[in-house]
Amino acid sequence: MKNKEPLIAVVVIFFSLVTYYLVEPYAHHVLHKEVISKNFAYADLPAITKTGDATRGQELLMGAGACVGCHSIEVAGIPATMTPHDAAAAYGVNPPDLSNMGVMYDEKFLADVIKNPSHAMMNEHMFDAEKGLMHPMPPFYGAGGDIDQEVADMVAYMQSISVTKEDVTPKMAYENACGRCHALEYEKWTQIGTHKNFKDKKDDLAYQIDFIKYKESITGFMGKLPPDLSMYIRSRGEHFISTFIEDPQAHLPGTSMPRVGVTADTAEKVIEYLKDAGDTKRVEREEIGQYVMIYIVIFAIFAFLWKRQVWKELH
């Protein structure tokens, strides 16, 4: 009699794969909007045409630009004037330190954010000057000279004081670009800093109170508390996170999440940090996986050889 097993195997595998295709790739393609990455080009933002002068930029940042009224620049010896929760109470969110902005953010974005913050961040729908809803960061209207030149100078200054791209760690990228709104419990990160193990319960409670105050401020500012991102690498996946960082409005029109304007490199580092938080054992999984696959193939081969020997006598 003809051996029907190959045909049966084909039928079984075919129907299994069809089912898999329909409920996984196909259904998810229908359920979720496909957003294609534009490689963090920020093509909608104008390019910087002037050559910036860092020295002049420093003067503007510290003087006419009035940046240091709200922003700290730790590397330049300008510490934060307020605690994170007081700053959040005043502005809605703690303004970022400018020390490493120059390397982590796209320069076109930095230039645009100085001139028109809610345009660069794509959250104009949240701020309407006519209704008295101002973006917490006031636009820079120029210090009397050529505004484009002045902005280029400021960007050049920020770039000059930054660490190099190679020195930006995943942790730094996350904390600067995401960490002022999003906690990351599994890495012990709260929006006001790393949650230390306080020995004294009073210290811990004091910290918790500051944390609650911060969360209240940011909840008021954003409409809801930005979620903890600990498991986002599993719940959203790399592609979603990357394209969401690049252009939140493309995924969720009307979301209060601003475009953060990071470079592709910074986004990659943020994702690496999220992997450390939510997919910590990925390297071990790949490695163990190889060994297990090799073993199980050997197992199957030996089982087959055994079967062949046993069945020799049966036919």
Binding site: Y20, R234, I296, A300, A303, F304, K307
Partner: peptide
């Protein structure tokens, strides 16, 4: 055992490299 062996190759491939279908992403939100 031969069939089990073949099945386990498929099974462990899923465990290590293609587990998403069995662990829904949405359930990674609390």
């Amino acid at each position: 055992m031969t069939i089990v062996g073949l099945y386990l190759v498929f099974f462990f491939y899923l465990v290590f490299y293609n587990y998403g279908f069995a662990m829904d992403p949405v359930n990674f939100d609390p």
